[in-house]
Design a protein around this nucleic acid. Sequence first.
DNA 1: CTGGGTTGGGAAAACGTTTTCCTAAGGTCC
DNA 2: GGACCTTAGGAAAACGTTTTCCCAACCCAG
Lengths: 330, 330
Amino acid sequence: MADDRRNPTIHDVARAAGVSIGTVSKALNGTGSLAQSTRDRVMTTVRALNFRPNLLAKSLHTGLSGSVGLISNDSFGRFTMPIMEGLERVLSEDGIGVFMANATDDPERELAHLEQLLAKQIDGLVVTSRRADRRPSIEIQGLPIPVIYVFSQGGEDALSFLPDDEGGARLATEHLIQQGRTRIAHITGPDNFEAVRLREIGWRAALTQANLPPGPVLHGPWSEAWGREAMARLLTHPPDAIFCGNDQIARGVADTIREAGLKCPEDIALVGFDNWDVMVTACRPPLTSVDMNLTALGAEAGRQLAAMIKGAKPTGTHRLPCTLIHREST
Amino acid sequence: MADDRRNPTIHDVARAAGVSIGTVSKALNGTGSLAQSTRDRVMTTVRALNFRPNLLAKSLHTGLSGSVGLISNDSFGRFTMPIMEGLERVLSEDGIGVFMANATDDPERELAHLEQLLAKQIDGLVVTSRRADRRPSIEIQGLPIPVIYVFSQGGEDALSFLPDDEGGARLATEHLIQQGRTRIAHITGPDNFEAVRLREIGWRAALTQANLPPGPVLHGPWSEAWGREAMARLLTHPPDAIFCGNDQIARGVADTIREAGLKCPEDIALVGFDNWDVMVTACRPPLTSVDMNLTALGAEAGRQLAAMIKGAKPTGTHRLPCTLIHREST
DNA sequence: CTGGGTTGGGAAAACGTTTTCCTAAGGTCC
DNA sequence: GGACCTTAGGAAAACGTTTTCCCAACCCAG
């Protein structure tokens, strides 16, 4: 009644309910030993005043702020989004908030963000990178809080979560083999990406296992234009299937196939990587693609981070399985 | 020295520097009246202990947490990301952290998130929606903190930031007119989107101003497939220019133009909307498009929110200008 | 009745800051 | 050399919680 400007505090509730603040706290948290009637009276007052405990004050006491930081290096790009979504969903169930910070590969900004986050007493940190190989900042070593690397690799005894690029590539290639394809090419991105190398390994492994010779491998930029160009190069001796390093390349390939008068999938079957909806559905024909399950990756990271905050100390690099999504291009 | 597990507190600094905690606080904040030598001694100790003030404790005192919430309704989709980026960049300069919350149009989740954020004592809230018209939740009325709607419309005396769809459409259409086009069609999205209606208005206004008759308007889904289909319908009497409601539609249109043996831009000039890099660069030819400057929109929202936290009370719906990005399709 | 065990609830310390006094020491002026 | 200002820095309250005692009151048995 006094101030309707200020949020009600536990003191207001105590006064209104005619008890001490300790009693209110016990009623709120279900601790201590209180008569049921007292609990009820307090809770009624709580609702009447629309009281919401100040988590900051609680944090001061418990030493846990109930928030974590996410430092992204790709300006919240296409890959960070689903990760964030999974992470946030899982953590919010535990009442943990996620501070988003974008460092854009600028070590100075990264450090500034880290300082701010630490000052805000975050309980944990998630670091995501973009896809090219890059060492994580040195600064991040020896932090007083748990750190998880998602879609990026931490150091020695760090905990990292990544998609199983090799397994995904194998999945795609095996799928093509099952459909009776025997001359399977691979058109992919720049080979300074670790993911590119891993996917190539997976593709090769599946072929070897099926006693098939590897088709040609073409490296180039991650673009549709490169897909078109690479496919044009293959037109003199066209393969009967192509596994592409991502969906954009695959879509470029599909365009060249169609414009060369060939049929996909009849003449050439095609599999992409990323399962990026806007690409796979707009592709003609709709593209079979490998889904990295990034939302699940983020969710798993969230679960692990929550566990680490409670004291667990998992380490190692974990690669989560990819899934093949079958569409008309195969 | 005592606990190397626990973060050092202001008490540790005070003890090490041989002063009181009040003095440390004054040295840290440059307040009070202290001898320069004392200030220096304290600051040296601060650095030696790697002391970082606990912002939570400070917040308890100041009543400001230095964090705001962002509730998104599109699972951190394509439009939310640049907004977030701009918002976060501006606010982080003021030391304000951004909690990300994804509600995905589920009012129950939205309410739960709001409760969590309020419990964490956020100083302000940003609400973004996806693009179809939707009333903001009722729950958000009468909050004790400033609220800004970005890429979505708040109520009566709320503060909202939106791109100037009408102006952007006018920009695009005027550009086509300047290039001597006279029969300008409009292929766009579902007309239950306010943005679709506004863009159509802008297109029509530019034509009227130039004394040109409006070409046909075709409404359909936001997809390349619709762009292809719509363009096919126009092939009997092709216009000499098309302004599309988004880049995906434009790209579909470009494909049909090319496949019909016509030339873009020679026979038909083409402008898209969104300036979505992956679409405009992969399009053949690269697509002229209207950029909504969402990063700037987010940044402006950040500036305003920071001002509101300091007491400003701006209201109204603000539409920020779009920019035309010229490429080879015109 | 008295004494011991329960039980309900209050008082107060603690968390890590900021800020408002307040006091002691030193300097200045006559 | 005393009265008065400065000035430097300390003590303590305050922010809103949780939690650890601790004390009253009640119950029941002897």
